[in-house]
Design a protein around this nucleic acid. Sequence first.
DNA 1: ACAAAAGTGTTGCTGGTACACCCATGT
DNA 2: ACATGGGTGTACCAGCAACACTTTTGT
Lengths: 240, 240
Amino acid sequence: MKEARKPNINTTPIELMPSFQFALSVDCVIFGYDQDVLKVLLIESDLPAYKGQWSLLGDLVRPNEDLDDASYRVLRERTGLTGMFLEQVKTFGAVSRHPAGRVITTAYLALVNVRDHQLKTLDNALHWHAVSDIKTMAFDHQIILNTCVAALQRKIQEEPIIFNLLEEKFSLRDLQQLFEQILGVAFDRRNFRKKLFTTGLLKDEKEMEKMVRHRPGKLYSFDRKAYEQIKRKSFVGLQF
Amino acid sequence: MKEARKPNINTTPIELMPSFQFALSVDCVIFGYDQDVLKVLLIESDLPAYKGQWSLLGDLVRPNEDLDDASYRVLRERTGLTGMFLEQVKTFGAVSRHPAGRVITTAYLALVNVRDHQLKTLDNALHWHAVSDIKTMAFDHQIILNTCVAALQRKIQEEPIIFNLLEEKFSLRDLQQLFEQILGVAFDRRNFRKKLFTTGLLKDEKEMEKMVRHRPGKLYSFDRKAYEQIKRKSFVGLQF
DNA sequence: ACAAAAGTGTTGCTGGTACACCCATGT
DNA sequence: ACATGGGTGTACCAGCAACACTTTTGT
């Protein structure tokens, strides 16, 4: 039985293709680390269907805007930040995910330093929430958040992106607590230090913590140059 | 300086939002393993702009179709297969990526057994290509392919999905060669065996290769039940 | 008999884990 | 002086890498 030739977006002139009303958006999962807690930046939804619930920061993609640019614009407009870590995670395209129509959204993971940004808090009803406190969200945003938390857990073990969440200079305790927050496990302090030192990614800033009510710890920073060199020699292992 | 409140897809009724002509598609990167070579299934483009070049198999997403369903439909229509491994990888949304207009596409990674499927080869100008032979493709499909190859390399080391590319029963040589093809490295045979046996994921089928002109090897299959049990106890490590 | 690939063990090294005591600072 | 967390070393164990010879089958 011979099947009719199937249409193909890549071989059929687009004028011949059926078209209909799609909306395309980006949603940013913006993580920050504040007072030893992993947080995410949310906005209160004022759509009737989700009155009082929290949602991610998003916006429609503009006609002449790349997808990545759209997410960057949302970040910049909302937090005043530029140059933050920002990476696509996944696209959510269930037919009924938005009550007002067919909206496909691409989720982005952003890591920001909560001290740097200037929130338009009054204007926007933006708030930082502890990730572990969030139980329900508008739309399918709880699923998107969970997906991005999982992506974050995986990615901090593959690339040294975790430093984007910390101040320029940080103590090893800061770093360890942040790892523990994100991964939900505890590490032995001595082994953690050894492991991090042997990565060669920490630069000793020759400074100490100040204003702490205990013995002050040394401060370190992420050694970008060392990282660039290490990357060149990296090798891919086999693991199940 | 007070900024005006920004629009937000999640807080603004959709009727008020600007809309314009988007097209949304899925493209499938279909990998197969044939005659000891990693291959990808492509179709010849007949768009004038890309005459004679190869492109991925894709189609527009339908108004009432989930994104994942669209990719599954493409696979089913083209290969006659059902139940194959299929997973979203990334969405490509550059403004000018399609010459006919604004087309955002979501790339899916598919792993199929080349023996199982029934290609509509004559109808569709479909061909298997060695991944390493492909130098240029239509649209941004070369980038999409490279992204999916990298995703495949990463994922076969995280989850035992590689078995989707093999026959139900396979020899350890088949498995090792496939790993080597995908990762582009060579492994010591003895160490490879030990490693794979200690995963506990191989079931001894108590059968031998046949019709080989050397000593026949034992055949194994992927032990799904064992894998399900192992997954429950799995633990997340720390690694840079 | 020859060609081709299967099957098999040991050793050394590296990296992870478990674990306890003294030190510097603020109150 | 006390509370808090900083800073350090060692011993054991597991997993990885390197490495060579014998066995089975087809021709």
